[in-house]
């Protein structure tokens, strides 16, 4: 056990020494991997933020229900009581046609035009908050309300929710595709780096094999190096994203003041950061493994 630890400690020290031996090349490699990872990472971070925003801070999508113009006060009361009894309805607000007209006059500045109309062209209406705000639930409510007597028109605010959903789905797809492409880039970078190292350490590998080193033994320091490279690249990507967010949040705070809302993009959560590190290290390890396994076969006797 102690011995086993010593073997791995030696490999780890070897990998660090290897990084330090060619500092510029190592830094450039880590930088390339960092930039490659920062791209999907930034996308992902924005995606997560938008998702959070749409979950807890957005105005609740609403259903607006308008009665027919010839509806009587009794019809209105009937609808109101139906709504109040309905199990999917969270809250309702009644807007009488007189109130609606007054609002319109006050807000639109069209008082003269509206005055010239003579009568009140607006119907009585209800604004309804549903308990379940998914697009599908809202649509089934709309279809139900439409069948009620004296209901002229039911309008849904779910269109934007659907659009957001679609946008988020597209975003997820983009993150996946970018992630896969750049994961491939990471593997390729480590593959090549390790291949070069094997070429420059030809003599050493040859001697080690001649005096009884197994392939796993020779491969091990390269695997450590690859994993270390991936990990360092992952952390660099994380830092780049952090820098980007910092810049963006500076801008957003100006916007926030303007709209009176608090807009701040959050960086990756702790579990996500951990997964990033593990993922990047694993990819580096994989690239090194592919490279070492492919390039060490040439040393065996024919």
């Amino acid at each position: 056990m102690k011995n086993w630890l010593r073997q791995h400690g030696l490999c780890f020290a070897g990998a660090i020494a290897q990084l330090a031996r060619t500092p510029l090349a190592s830094l450039l490699n880590i930088g390339v991997i960092g930039v490659a990872l920062a791209l999907p990472l930034a996308f992902y971070v924005v995606l997560v933020n938008v998702q959070n925003l749409s979950h807890d801070k957005s105005p609740v999508p609403q259903v607006s229900l308008f009665l027919a113009l010839d509806a009587q006060a009794a019809d209105t009361r009937e609808i109101e009581s139906l709504l109040k009894k309905h199990s999917s309805v969270a809250k309702i607000r009644y807007i009488s046609r007189d109130q609606a007209l007054a609002d319109l006059k006050a807000k639109s500045g069209l008082a003269d035009v509206i005055g010239a109309l003579g009568g009140n062209p607006l119907p009585d209406g209800f604004v309804i908050d549903a308990k379940d705000n998914s697009a599908a639930a809202l649509e089934s409510l709309r279809d139900e309300f439409k069948k009620w007597p004296k209901v002229e028109h039911v309008q849904l605010d779910s269109a934007w929710a659907r659009r957001l959903d679609a946008a988020l789905q597209l975003g997820r797809l983009i993150v996946l595709v970018l992630g896969a492409l750049l994961a491939f880039a990471l593997v390729a970078v480590t593959f090549n780096t390790i291949r070069l190292q094997i070429v420059t350490q030809r003599d050493e590998i040859e001697v080690a094999k001649l005096i009884g080193a197994t392939n796993p033994f020779i491969r091990r320091p390269f695997l450590y190096y690859g994993a270390l490279l991936g990990l360092a690249g992952g952390l660099t990507g994380w830092l780049i994203t952090l820098g980007g967010l910092h810049l963006l949040n500076g801008r957003l705070s100006g916007l926030s003041d303007l709209y009176g809302a608090r807009l701040r993009l959050q960086h990756l959560s702790m579990p996500d950061t951990l997964s990033l590190c593990v993922f990047a290290a694993a990819l580096g390890w994989l690239g090194a493994w592919l490279s070492a396994s492919g390039n060490l076969a040439a040393f065996d006797p024919q």
């Binding site: 003599d203 050493e204 040859e206 001697v207 094999k209 001649l210 005096i211 009884g212 080193a213 197994t214 033994f217 065996d300 006797p301």
Partner: peptide, 18 residues
Amino acid sequence: IPFLRRNFGLMFQDHKLL
């Protein structure tokens, strides 16, 4: 092969020192 080679001490004509 590595385990076979560990039976031997090898001195090469060209040393092969590191």
